[in-house]
Design a protein around this nucleic acid. Sequence first.
DNA 1: TTGTACGCGTTATCAA
DNA 2: TTGATAACGCGTACAA
Lengths: 349, 349
Amino acid sequence: MTVVSRRAAVTIKDVAREAGVGLMTVSRVINGVPGRKFSEETAQRVRAAIKQLGYEPNHVARSLRGQRSGVIGLVTTNVADPFWASCARGVEMEARKQNYVPILVATDEDCLLEERQVAALQAHRVDGLLLVSTYRSKRTTLTSRLAGIPTVAMDRPITGFKTDCVLIQNDEATYNATRHLISHGHRKIAFVGYGERLYTVHQRIEGYARAMNEAGLAPLVCAGASDPSGARALAYDVLTQSAPPTAIFGSNSLTLHGVMEVAQSLGLRIPDDLALAGFEDFRWAQFVKPGLTVVRQPGEEMGRRAAQMLFERLAGKKGPPQRVVLESELVIRESCGCGAPAALTAAIA
Amino acid sequence: MTVVSRRAAVTIKDVAREAGVGLMTVSRVINGVPGRKFSEETAQRVRAAIKQLGYEPNHVARSLRGQRSGVIGLVTTNVADPFWASCARGVEMEARKQNYVPILVATDEDCLLEERQVAALQAHRVDGLLLVSTYRSKRTTLTSRLAGIPTVAMDRPITGFKTDCVLIQNDEATYNATRHLISHGHRKIAFVGYGERLYTVHQRIEGYARAMNEAGLAPLVCAGASDPSGARALAYDVLTQSAPPTAIFGSNSLTLHGVMEVAQSLGLRIPDDLALAGFEDFRWAQFVKPGLTVVRQPGEEMGRRAAQMLFERLAGKKGPPQRVVLESELVIRESCGCGAPAALTAAIA
DNA sequence: TTGTACGCGTTATCAA
DNA sequence: TTGATAACGCGTACAA
């Protein structure tokens, strides 16, 4: 692949020539050193030249020189998912404040791809990493790579690697949602979701199972899907067995959607024949009929907080890895069996 | 801001020493020049050393040396919007195929911010730009900056700058949707949307007005919102006037959502009291009641195609700017007044 | 207060 | 087939 011709970029040299000063004077004016080692008059000339030539400092050269690159890596599983999209938005806004830009890559929940992407980010000399890490089913060099770069884990801790992380309450939220379904009189409640090796799924199953056990009910976990059709298959199997559950907790938005599709195709009315609750609120959830009872996760805030923590580390903050857990919220609508469609929300402490 | 210590990276020099060869031999082995200018035996030694040391080529240095940086800029208005998120996803997937990574920045529909972001991308020496450009209400240096970087416009052309672009059919889709509403007997149909200076909004208004005029009806355009609350205000005004419209076309997802909220608060039944159609399909649209009749835009494909066009240019493709227009599709559900909730879709030629 | 020389990691060029 | 050298744009260390 050859590169097309590019307009010769204007460098610090051009500015120096234009302003009739040395290179370093220009550099100093640009970087505004603490000690003000130049006269205001020359500074004026330099600034004029910069403007005139439309000079823009070359981050690449700065970066090579050993300074910060001004780039961070943002590794999610798939930005098309609204939750990761809002997370990316939070990161982007925070990065902008700090004059940083994020490189966006995806792992598709594949630990090998995750490793490759982290390696690529490393090759681009990012100053830090924001990482949504996937369960590692194979040996990878991930943790040794991570040792070289300030990293903040988002949504899930990184297996075998202690670092700053921003998580969201999973168990407690699922516990409360399950209890809520139980309070509606359901005794057979299934948990449908992705593979339980995923940290968040595991946590959610824990909360679900705790609520079930406390109520003396037998947990019914259907985990192992990895895409929409898998979730549908799981839902179909559990809903067509001899004594199907009267309620289902959907571990994520895609799963919940799949359950709805299957329920509809089976002619099940919600919440009368099948009550539903699950994960992830979204803009239109109020207009879905029946309104969905879901756990709302602060995705944007997670991105923002993670970015903030990373920038603090980049600014030199010392200390042991920190763990921040953001609260989630159970938004009660109608799919659980509640009559009132009003904004009856219960905050989870 | 100081940078925390970073593990000293292993360079090509280390590899050369380890393998007992010169720098250039290593470089040649890595880059596998066409003419195979090295013996297989030395190549083996070099590859072994690379593996042993865990060497990873430094993109930053490559970039400085004048080669491609391996980075492209991806400028959208806001990734939290599902449409831009799917677009970003398309770009990301295509970039991955080409061993490129995208830097993600947002403009928030602000032309000044757009300029700043493009400048930042320039400073990072991106090889190319994928840009969702906003209407320029103020003088900016955008076009002169763009002259230096291969650029593909997405969703909207760039004012005053001819370049490759990937657009989506707006007028035709809106024309068809409006005609569909008219076919249901509506005579007073309002168009509610964002500012008409936005290219896409302008196009949609054209299609809407054409359908109205052809039917001998008077267009009723309520444009000028710039956020959800603005859209709600617009919807409220038009729905509470003396002779309110019996149907509304919502120019984007947020607007359509706002109209639904207002309609609900006014106790309007859809589609009986108010028929609705609008832009942007989404995963849950089938479960919204009534099902939403919307134009489905191929966001991911747009991102993918734009990225492909950019990489073709980066590979040296010559020729005048190309314009690709992707087809959109009217997904007919129930909000327009159609009874059948089935997947009755009409492709737009 | 200002300027010069060097090095960051890589590749193009040229010589061996 | 290989290696030495210069250059990319910038900032640090030092000299003027």
